[in-house]
């Protein structure tokens, strides 16, 4: 009885996995097909055609886009960690008037959809001369209410006595923040880092607005460019490019899945 239950459970899980992962498997398979094969509607390539990948790199500066995406995602990730880390520290370890009110103000920004500020932000970035600059693609995302909230939840678990002990040994706020709070909160920093990296990597609308130049354009927009350039016949090339876009984030996700799940649940519920 138990055996039957176990086998059926595994079967269900496997079937669901296949269905869910099917689009990616299909893309992988198509990325190795020649144009004719794609048009014939085969599911598996009869012969491997890795040249689709070379073709993708030749059609658009995919390497450049890849580099841009990495740089932009890393800058935003560290920016968010620093800026929301500092804010979260102030909300937990510093006592100042209006702390609650200010925290509510921070949280309320989570309810303002990004699209609300899109038009004026576009104008602001234009005025700052940040169109086609990394700055325009990164700085507006540094302040994160979600990040501040997530880190604050974690910082609050650090016993107050640690700050008191630091005070008695004459350690100031900055040193305590850098030498104690940040290292102790490593796991939540990693969670927030992974989350920010993934979201930034996958951002679509904002880079579409603020990049007209291939030198700073991230992968997502590069993919759009490639897709619009390609004729109907070259699905293999487009699929190859899509896989190149997906692989880095999938790796990050696979490594950080446990962290992410725990961290996001905590952030959502406490």
């Amino acid at each position: 009885m138990k055996r039957i239950k176990l086998i059926s459970l595994y079967t269900v899980l496997t079937i669901l996995s296949l269905i869910l992962f099917f689009p990616m498997l299909y893309a992988l398979s198509a990325s190795f097909m020649s144009a004719q094969e794609v048009l014939l509607g085969h599911f598996f390539p009869h012969q491997l055609h890795p040249e689709n990948y070379l073709e993708a790199f030749r059609d658009v500066p995919l390497l450049r886009f890849l580099f841009n995406s990495i740089i932009i995602s890393l800058i935003v990730t560290f920016g968010v960690l620093i800026v929301s880390g500092m804010a979260a520290y102030a909300f937990v370890f510093l006592h100042f008037r209006g702390r609650r009110l200010l925290f509510i103000l921070f949280i309320s920004t989570m309810m303002i959809p990004w699209e609300t500020s899109m038009i004026p932000n576009f104008v602001t970035v234009q005025h700052l001369g940040w169109i086609n600059r990394y700055a325009g693609l990164t700085v507006p995302f540094f302040a994160s209410a979600f990040g501040t909230f997530l880190l604050r939840q974690y910082f609050k678990t650090i016993p107050e006595e640690m700050w008191e002990a630091a005070q008695i040994s004459g350690i100031g706020h900055f040193r305590f923040f850098v030498k104690v709070v940040l290292p102790v909160s490593r796991t939540s920093l990693v969670t927030l880092g992974i989350y920010t990296f993934l979201t930034t990597w996958n951002t679509y609308l904002w880079p579409l607005l603020t990049t007209t130049d291939e030198r700073v354009r991230p992968l997502q927009i590069g993919l759009r460019q490639l897709q619009s350039q390609e004729t109907v016949n070259d699905w293999g090339v487009v699929m190859a490019a899509a896989l190149i876009v997906v692989v880095p984030t999938l790796i990050v996700l696979f490594i950080g899945q446990k962290h992410l799940q725990q961290g996001l649940t905590d952030g959502a519920l406490k």
């Binding site: 016993p159 006595e161 008191e164 002990a165 008695i168 102790v184």
Partner: peptide
Amino acid sequence: PPSKRSLSMVFQNYALYPH
């Protein structure tokens, strides 16, 4: 300030830095 009072303190939960 606490650091200028020439004292040390041992806390109930020890307040050791876990890292």
